[in-house]
């Protein structure tokens, strides 16, 4: 797994640097404008679009074929594709928490953060198996739909929290929101299992 992650980090250095710059810029603008929603969407988009960039590079370089032919188990290869997107999702959630501290009167309640994190995990979990199964080129249509759902979903979730304040108004609702990342992690675990199965059956 160490080798797979190291390759992933080295190969993604440029894109991760670009992500960091873009997110920081949106974060600063969001803080200055006191509008945390400004960068939430960008953050989710980054985490969700990262797998397509990474898997497209793997396809071009035939890395997955090399890793499998070298004897690396499909489970390790599949799991390695989730580490960076999930870390990005976590970092974005932490940055969003920081934003909520810095903005005097944030429109997003605190309990919205775990839900956004969960949404990101679920979207990443949906996309990776699609790209591994159909390839990035063919899976792009599905990917586009998922990205649209990501943006629309985060906006809708954000709106729901702001306008209705439904979930956070009750203790049970708050507990539900707080525990929602478990749902995201379960989706990721299921997705890793599906991706492993895809790699096991895939022919190169």
């Amino acid at each position: 797994m160490k080798g797979l992650l190291l390759k992933e980090l080295i190969a993604s250095k440029a894109i991760l640097r670009w992500y960091a710059f873009l997110f920081t810029a949106f974060f600063i603008v969001g803080i200055v404008l006191q509008n945390e929603g400004f960068f939430f969407g960008v953050g989710v988009f980054m985490a969700v679009s990262y797998p397509s960039i990474s898997i497209a590079a793997d396809e071009k370089e035939k890395w997955l074929k090399f890793a499998l032919a070298s004897g690396c188990p499909p489970l390790k290869i599949a799991a390695s594709k989730y580490v960076i997107p999930l870390t990005l999702a976590l970092l974005i959630a932490l940055a969003s928490a920081l934003a909520l501290c810095l903005i005097p009167d944030p429109s997003l309640p605190w309990m919205g953060l775990p839900v956004l994190f969960t949404l990101t995990l679920i979207l990443v979990s949906l996309m990776i198996p699609v790209y591994l199964r159909f390839g990035v080129e063919h899976g792009r249509v599905v990917g586009m739909v998922i990205i649209v759902i990501a943006v629309a979903g985060s906006a809708a979730a954000f709106g729901a929290f702001v306008n209705i304040g439904l979930i956070t108004s009750t203790v049970a609702g708050a507990v539900l929101c707080g525990l929602s990342p478990l749902l995201g992690l379960a989706a990721a675990a299921l997705s890793i299992a599906v991706s492993t199965k895809i790699l096991r059956k895939k022919e190169f």
């Binding site: 797994m1 190969a11 250095k13 590079a57």
Partner: peptide
Amino acid sequence: DVCLPDSVKVREISPILSGLI
């Protein structure tokens, strides 16, 4: 097709493959 990642430098191949093989 050699299958080594294009963006990786020659000196980085060994640390990557030592973690893989």
